[in-house]
Amino acid sequence: MGGDLNSARQLAKEFTCSKRAAAAAVLAIVLAVVLASAALAASTTTLLPATTNTTAPSGSDQAAGSEDLTTRCLTCHSQEYLGTVQDDKGTQNLYIDSAAYHDSAHGLLPCNACHTGFSHDPHKMVNNAEFFRQTANEACRNCHDDQFEMYKQSYHGTLSRGGTAAGEKAPICIDCHGTHAIQKVGTLEYKQSISDVCGKCHGGREGHGGREATFLDTYHGKAITLGRESAATCVDCHGAHSILPVSNPQSTLSEANILPTCQKCHPDASKGFSTFLVHVKPTSTKAPLIVFAVAVFYLLMIIAVFAFGGIHTLLYIYRGLKDGMYFGKGGGH
């Protein structure tokens, strides 16, 4: 009995102790959250004027703060099935993955930093995808003017202004960089995604076909796939914002410029080095004849050797089992 009483007292004491500890912990957590949000608010408000002055409407929205604005937008746009509307290009899903957005490079920006012209809730409906594409480039330019100027001079930029059928498909900022989940530059995941981004247009079988697959089959491609950050990707050779066709003398890969481009990573490279063919599929008839011949020779050789070796092995095992050479009386000896 005494023991039970003691242990009950002990329990009661522990309970009060743990209650106190819990209260302290809750207090500490609350304090930490308050401090953290204060710090965050301070950092975003100091960040905001520079980025929103040119774009965000002045007055009440800015006073409300970016957190509030983003929260207000996401009230509707974080609903997965909401915001699917008909427009002139079909359906447009207006759902935003808010976690991915907050993790992105732009996670601290308010929605209207890019979506200029949206200030009030509920805002005017804009049922035209083209509107977003047009405003997007201008929105990027507000902060990334240097890159935008380079892009404007590039093949992609020229094409997108051309008003041709190809121009309609020409990439604008968001086609390469994405929209709400813009990656932080320089991470391994970012570098690994580059060939996929370019491959969206240059990876298919037609036209600029197979550029992604052939790149991934070079050492550069293999190394970046398996996590070697320093390996070159598309943009290291072709350039990024100011990309031009190889045929253009200004291209980083033109006759005159290709060697210095190689030498960025391979300082000892010579002219011969720069004639290595990156985008070659050895088993394609479009490959140089000697490369194609070696690839086909090996294909046939591998099939022949494996088939013959495999049949020889299976027959040997069959005979060995049948004659009881493997198990039993050692019949083969």
Binding site: F273, T275, L299
Partner: peptide, 24 residues
């Protein structure tokens, strides 16, 4: 030693080397 190789031989040598090395 790709730099040394292509100082003597054309760049396609490295294409051949890769195909050969990998398959063999």
């Amino acid at each position: 030693f790709p730099e040394a190789t292509t100082r003597v031989l054309p760049g396609i040598t490295l294409n051949l080397a890769l195909v050969l090395h990998s398959n063999e």
